[in-house]
Amino acid sequence: MSESLQSTSESETMPNATVLIVDDEKPITDAYAQWLEDDYTVRTAYSGSEALEKLDESVDVVLLDRRMPDLSGEILELGFDAYLEKPVSEATELHETVETLLRRTTYDSQIQRFLSLANKKAALETKKNAEELEANEEYAELTEELATLRQQLSDTATGMDDEDLRAEFYDPDNPGE
């Protein structure tokens, strides 16, 4: 058991990822923190208000106990795409959960960036003719970055299973039919 934990030296998906663990049951929070602290930067919070204090843009994943008594609506509105529905009893399981969430986060930001670059490139193509594009430095850079990003996206998506991808398309305003 502990062996498999040791074999995971660092997050494969995102180096230096920061995880915020929120649970009002202190022993659980602390156990999770211990399981994760070798591989991630870990923050803990024992209440909803504390969670809000410790939450900033450097946090990549939040492990949140949704049944916490003082959980404010504010934190729920942040739109996390996964909660720990049941207590996790093994370090490896928790690692997998965190990695899954990191992959989703990574995919999310990569595809957003990809789409925004694709939009820019398309706008240039619409405005300029082939010769102008040829001479346009920004266009060359866009194309190059898109090609790189496309490969990265493909790598990220390879690690995502159907459930992960389903979450990608989850629309809180329209949760299923």
Binding site: F114, A118, N119, K121, A122, A123, E125, T126, L146, R150
Partner: peptide, 11 residues
Amino acid sequence: DEETVNTLKTL
């Protein structure tokens, strides 16, 4: 429109 097609092309 052309821009839509061009954006999709990147995929």
